[in-house]
Write a protein that binds this DNA or RNA. Structure first.
Lengths: 258, 258
DNA sequence: AGATTGTTGATTGTCAACAATCGGGCCTTG
DNA sequence: CAAGGCCCGATTGTTGACAATCAACAATCT
């Protein structure tokens, strides 16, 4: 028997994956602010890997929605608008609804134990009154519900959306609701899942995002009214047009190279 | 005024994107069968581009779920199981539900015209009795509903799922229901959206996928029963374990290189 | 002066060579 | 004869150099 039965995963990861991890951390922490331009060569120097590897990492992050690319021109950290927030929360609502429903139909001793523990951790976090701890526990609870479903594509998709939500929150000092209210919101969801009431669990989990969705939808409507145009949604950027507005062209450059 | 107002877009696409298009077509058409191993160097020769470019294309397709990678070892066309089909249809149900609801809240003369036309094209296709035409029109109708929402992330996500569904259908000679029944299923959805009844539109669009979801869930349960194990769902691949099952190791090699 | 066209520096896109890793066959060994 | 280690070919991972493209500025023309 080689070594042991425990599955200890050595970090035999590829370099581009590691590079992506570092960059993702920088972006999600806000140290790479929205609007920041990312230059392959500069990052390659800073990370100590080749440009091709950095390029692969950036492509990965582009798929995750954490960087955007203008072909042949530049990479940058995207600036998330109210429209983006509306998209993220509305999608998250649907995904969490699906997750709650499936979780309700997937009850085993193990999964219910994990669910209870995740909820208890949220209670403990609320008791400490530390915002970051509460946010983390809230996140973990939802992630637990999603994981219970065993739905690999749902899990992956949820992780992507969740990441972008974190990015939005981190870069827009938008804040979370009353912490004690959180428990009142989550308890019914957990109970419904534990009771196997799929219908109710789905509805509750879905509606859990409704306040944010409405909020950003309202912001969007306001913005549209203000400019008196039709624009059902932010027009996708077109080559020659759109010279409207001051268009705060934020473009902080990377620290001087070398 | 430079030249003219018309936006004539030259196909200034990157090579890896074009390579991805070609490979995607091969996979979706079934010419690259599930289980087929894809070798970077061979594809590079056949496509007339460098290995790095092929690599970028394969990464793109991996994100789309059309190829899978075993790090340091190989790329291959994934074999889709009943579990995959269940995942795809359940996710698609949620996405289509969301799309129908948002579309109901997004009615303008233009969008409703597009919706009507898409439905009429489905009627025409059914009249011709040509399966491929019906399938295409069915797809186009759903795509229209999704597009009406203006929800860019939903549009992207739906395209991904849709693509994998096509892959599953193409490689499993699974077939579509009675063609005339299709109209009876879709008419209420279109009507609900046109009437602005978001609640009903969401429910109908969501339930539209329910038969498939149930079918594949049943197949899954059967498979689990048969092997008498617990496996709530296909265990995610772990380094050392899982030597169970005959695991039909289909591995047709590419045509002789050079 | 205003607009158009050429030039230039910076940045991304592509390529071909080199290094690391894996799977399988062969050999050894008990 | 079975189990385990080692070597080798095949394939992927990584790199540095070269080509294509773009945005901004300078020169030129009307």
């Amino acid at each position: 028997m080689p070594t042991s039965a425990v599955n200890l995963k050595l970090p035999k990861r590829r370099l581009d994956g590691q590079a992506a991890d570092v960059l993702r951390e920088q972006i999600l922490s806000g140290r790479f602010a929205p609007g920041l331009r990312l230059v392959e060569a500069t990052l390659a120097d800073q990370l100590g890997v080749s440009r091709g590897t950095v390029r692969a990492a950036l492509s990965e992050l582009a798929h995750e929605g954490l960087v955007s690319q203008v072909a042949y021109t530049k990479w940058m950290v995207p600036e998330l608008s109210a429209a983006d927030a509306w998209e993220l929360y509305s999608l998250r609502g649907s995904l969490e609804g699906l997750a709650a429903r499936l979780a309700s139909e997937h009850r085993t001793p193990e999964t219910m134990k994990a669910l209870r523990e995740a909820y208890e951790r949220l209670e403990e976090a609320v008791a400490t009154e530390r915002r970051s701890a509460v946010a983390a526990a809230d996140l973990a609870l939802h992630k637990t519900i999603v994981a219970i479903t065993g739905h690999r594509r749902l899990i992956g998709q949820y992780k992507l959306i969740e990441q972008q939500v974190r990015h939005y929150i981190a870069t827009s000092n938008a804040d979370i609701a009353d912490q004690h209210e959180l428990l009142n919101q989550h308890e019914p969801i957990v109970s419904a899942i534990a009771a196997g009431d799929a219908e109710r669990a789905e509805r509750l989990a879905h509606d859990h995002n409704a306040p944010e969705v409405r909020k950003f939808a309202a912001e969007l409507a306001q913005a549209i009214d203000r400019r008196g145009e039709i624009l059902p949604l932010p027009a996708r950027p077109r080559r020659g047009g759109d010279a409207s507005g001051p268009s705060t062209t934020k473009e902080p450059n990377q620290g001087g190279k070398k």
